[in-house]
Each structure stands twice: as structure tokens, then as C-alpha cells.
């Protein structure tokens, strides 16, 4: 009896060790794999830039931003801003993701911002229109803050991944006049290019109306589907529908194994950019899903192209 108990206890200890090692292995691998694509962006010399966290945009905690600045302000110089927007399905994520991207730009002599926006609770209160408005406001507030600190920003680019990629496209395309400085280009990864509900698996009018209501914050019922107002509401949050002749050059990356964002959406954006003659580049990550984690060579290609966009479209230039 006692021997049996001892054996059971030992088996439990072994099971606990197995589970603990499993969790540790999972977490360690996750940390390594997720950080891997950002190795190229790593800045070894932290003295090249400064970062101020949690600056206020509109007084709310959900819209704070982090500001990355080159170490020393050149009062006579003009600066370019890279405006980073985090992903997370519009319901999660945090501006802390910007720590993987923004130091790279600041160390090269640009200003960078990583902005939060009020996340959706699925009830339509926080939606793509409110997120867009908050981000535009933050861009304006951040540029003013930069000026106060001696960094005169004269141009900007938007960037982000997933939901952040979509919002980066919206901020760049929707109303450039609402931004404090001209947008020169946008570069994004795996951002949804359209919110046509059928492309998101909605097959009934009630589902279509609920989906569009949730994403836009406007109230639609099944009988509204197909109306002008309904379509206009979809279009104003769909980057592909916002592309016109004046749209800015666009760098995009997508993975065909993406199971989060329907893979067909990107073609709407490609077609719109083609139709309006907007310069754009698409880098496909053929072995990757939504995280773009399966193609290190394409990751490098994306960063190289990003540097090319910076050199080509930013008028202020960047340090080598």
C-alpha cells in the first residue's frame, strides 16, 4: 500500500516536471521565434535614441503613445516621422510592440511614434472609425510635442502589422489633410484590406449588418444591406476602397497560409493600387501564415525594401 502511494507520488512529480518543462520549452521557443524577424531592426547602441513612454494624446489612458527621438535634436533640421500602429485583431495588443520597430528608425535620425488606440469590445463602441480618429489626433499631438522638443517634423510614413497594418493604410489613405504633415508612404504587414462582410464569411443579411455595425460603429439592420449608406460605411473603413490617384506608395507583405485574415482581401488592394497607378510593392511570405514567421529571407527582403522606401520617398533622408 505504502509502496503504491510512493509510486503514485513519484509519477505525479514526473508529470509535473514534464508539464513544467513543456511550458518552459513552449515559452522559450515562442520568445525566440517571435523575436527572430526583428533581429535586423535591433539597435545595439541605445545612446543613439531616447524614448518617452505613455505620453498623452487626448487625456485618456487608452490613447497614450510612446515617442522615440534621435539622441540629439538638430534645431535647424527637418525630421521624418514613422508612425507605428500595433496589431491585435482590433481587440488586443499594445504599443509596446513598437519597441521592436521604433528604435531602428530613431537611431537612423527619424522620429518614431508607437500609438495605442481604444480597443474594440465587440460592441461597436470602439470601432475602426473611432480608432482612426484617435490615431489621427495622436499624430497631430505627437508632431506638436516633437516641435516643443526641438524636432521639426515635416513628413511622415505609417506602418503596422495585422490590425495595425489596416489602420496604417486607413490613416495614410483616408484623409491626408487631417494629418499634420504629408504622408509619403505606408508599409504594412498582413493588414485586412477590406471589410466587405461576404469576404469575412457572412452569408446572411442579419450577419452582414451586425458585422458592419460592429466594425464601423454605425447601426445597420438586415434591411439596410445593399443601401448606399451601408456601402459607404464599409468603404470608409476598407483601405482598398479608399485608394485613389493620390494614394501614397505602399509596401505590403502577406502570407498565403494566413488563417486570421482572409487571403483574398489583399488582391482588392493590389487591384486598386494598379488601377490608380499608385507605386506599390508586394513581398509574399510563401511559407508563412499571419505571423510571417516562416520566411526569414523574405523578412530581410521586406526590411531592405522598407529602407529603399525611406531613401526614396522621405525628402529629409536618413542616416546610413
Amino acid at each position: 500500500m505504502r509502496k503504491g502511494l510512493k509510486r503514485a507520488g513519484f509519477a505525479l512529480v514526473c508529470a509535473a516536471l514534464f508539464a513544467a518543462a513543456g511550458v518552459a520549452g513552449f515559452m522559450a521557443t515562442m520568445a525566440v521565434e517571435v523575436a527572430e524577424p526583428y533581429r535586423y531592426l535591433k539597435v545595439d547602441d541605445a545612446s543613439l535614441y531616447t524614448v518617452d513612454h505613455d505620453l498623452e494624446s487626448d487625456g485618456r489612458d487608452t490613447t497614450r503613445y510612446d515617442l522615440y527621438l534621435p539622441a540629439e535634436a538638430d534645431e535647424s533640421g527637418d525630421y521624418s516621422l514613422v508612425f507605428y500602429i500595433h496589431g491585435g485583431g482590433f481587440t488586443g495588443g499594445d504599443k509596446a510592440d513598437g519597441d521592436l520597430w521604433c528604435p531602428y528608425f530613431a537611431a537612423k535620425g527619424m522620429v518614431a511614434v508607437s500609438a495605442n488606440y481604444t480597443l474594440s469590445q465587440g460592441d461597436g463602441v470602439a470601432n475602426l472609425n473611432t480608432m482612426y480618429a484617435e490615431l489621427v489626433r495622436t499624430a497631430n499631438v505627437a508632431v506638436e510635442e516633437c516641435a516643443r522638443r526641438g524636432y521639426r517634423v515635416t513628413e511622415m510614413a505609417t506602418t503596422g502589422g495585422s490590425a495595425g497594418g489596416c489602420l496604417a493604410l486607413l490613416v495614410a489613405y483616408r484623409d491626408p489633410g487631417a494629418l499634420p504633415v504629408p504622408v509619403r508612404f505606408v508599409f504594412e504587414q498582413t493588414g485586412p484590406a477590406s471589410f466587405e462582410p461576404d469576404l469575412w464569411g457572412q452569408t446572411e443579411d442579419a450577419g452582414r449588418a451586425a458585422f458592419v455595425s460592429m466594425m464601423t460603429g454605425r447601426s445597420f439592420e438586415a434591411q439596410d444591406v445593399g443601401t448606399e449608406a451601408y456601402q459607404a460605411a464599409i468603404d470608409e473603413i476598407s483601405p482598398a476602397a479608399l485608394v485613389d490617384d493620390g494614394a501614397v506608395p505602399t509596401l505590403m507583405a502577406y502570407g498565403p497560409k494566413d488563417k486570421v485574415v482572409p487571403v483574398a482581401l489583399k488582391y482588392l488592394l493590389f487591384d486598386a493600387l494598379d488601377a490608380h497607378g499608385v507605386p506599390h510593392d508586394y513581398i509574399e511570405f510563401p511559407h508563412s501564415g499571419h505571423g510571417l514567421l516562416g520566411d526569414p529571407d523574405r523578412t530581410q527582403e521586406f526590411y531592405d525594401k522598407m529602407d529603399e522606401y525611406i531613401a526614396t520617398y522621405f525628402e529629409n533622408g536618413a542616416d546610413a
Binding site: 516536471l17 518552459a24 520549452g25 513552449f26 515559452m27 522559450a28 521557443t29 501564415g289
Partner: peptide
């Protein structure tokens, strides 16, 4: 005692391998 330690070490190693494999499967699915 020594046999117990060996069994425990094997459990730790097997757990770690399973964790790494599970993470890769998860990331590929994502």
C-alpha cells in the same frame, strides 16, 4: 535513487521537446 533521477531527467527532456514542438505547430497554424 539514481534510477528515479534518470526518470525525472527523461521527463524534463521529453516535456521540453514536446513544448518546443507544440510551439512550432502553434506558430505554423498561426
Amino acid at each position: 535513487m539514481r534510477r528515479k533521477l534518470v526518470v525525472m531527467a527523461v521527463c524534463v527532456a521529453a516535456g521540453a521537446v514536446c513544448g518546443i514542438l507544440a510551439c512550432n505547430v502553434f506558430l505554423n497554424a498561426f
